[in-house]
Amino acid sequence: MTGLMHKDYRTIVDSGKLYFIFIIIFALIPGLTNKAFAMLFSVMIPITTMNYDRNCKWDSYAKIALPQSALTIVGSKYMLGYSMIVLTYVLCTLENIFLSENAPVVVLLTDFVPLMAMAAIYISIILPIMYMVDSNKGGLIAIVITLGLILIIAFKQKAAVNFLLSFSAIHMNMFMALIGTMILMNVLSIILSANVFKNKEA
């Protein structure tokens, strides 16, 4: 998997710089909705690398020649997404500690962890769609949905914040339900994506 992730990180450096800039900008601006934007842009990173792989037919090569299983190849994309979410979380946390007024660590954990979980749930929905739908269509669908979510959050900020805070660890049942849903959806999503990848024609 290290080889696959190296290739993806190089793709990000070459083609995903813009998303990185957006992630940094929104992570460092105070406000929960800005953190939500940063998380959504972090999900665009694995989508971008998938589009790039499709364009240079890396997927076909990986399927026909590499010793790695479909699960490993697909899993590397999920790992990329999760690592981007964690990186965004770290940036958000740093902003809150150093730039915003003293935010208790507990609040950071309760507000941002649900945000990370929602981003991971979004990955679990969008990546199988990318694998099921051919070529540029999948990328277009992902971009449209992501931009749509960004617009909804931008125009309905209060509702978005209330929705996010309803899953805060203060409401322990909702928090645990969210974490449980995140884990379950991602496990099923990885299995589904691996099967779709395996059965698609090389």
């Binding site: 080889g3 190296h6 190089r10 070459d14 083609s15 240079c56 076909s60 090569y61």
Partner: peptide
């Protein structure tokens, strides 16, 4: 080893980048 007509490696890579990727894929 499988050598095909098409190039499957990303265009931004050079031969040394390809090696760094392949090193992590083949034992």
């Amino acid at each position: 080893g499988l050598a095909l007509e098409e190039a499957f490696f990303p265009g931004y890579m050079n031969a040394m980048d390809v090696e760094t990727t392949m090193k992590g894929l083949y034992s």
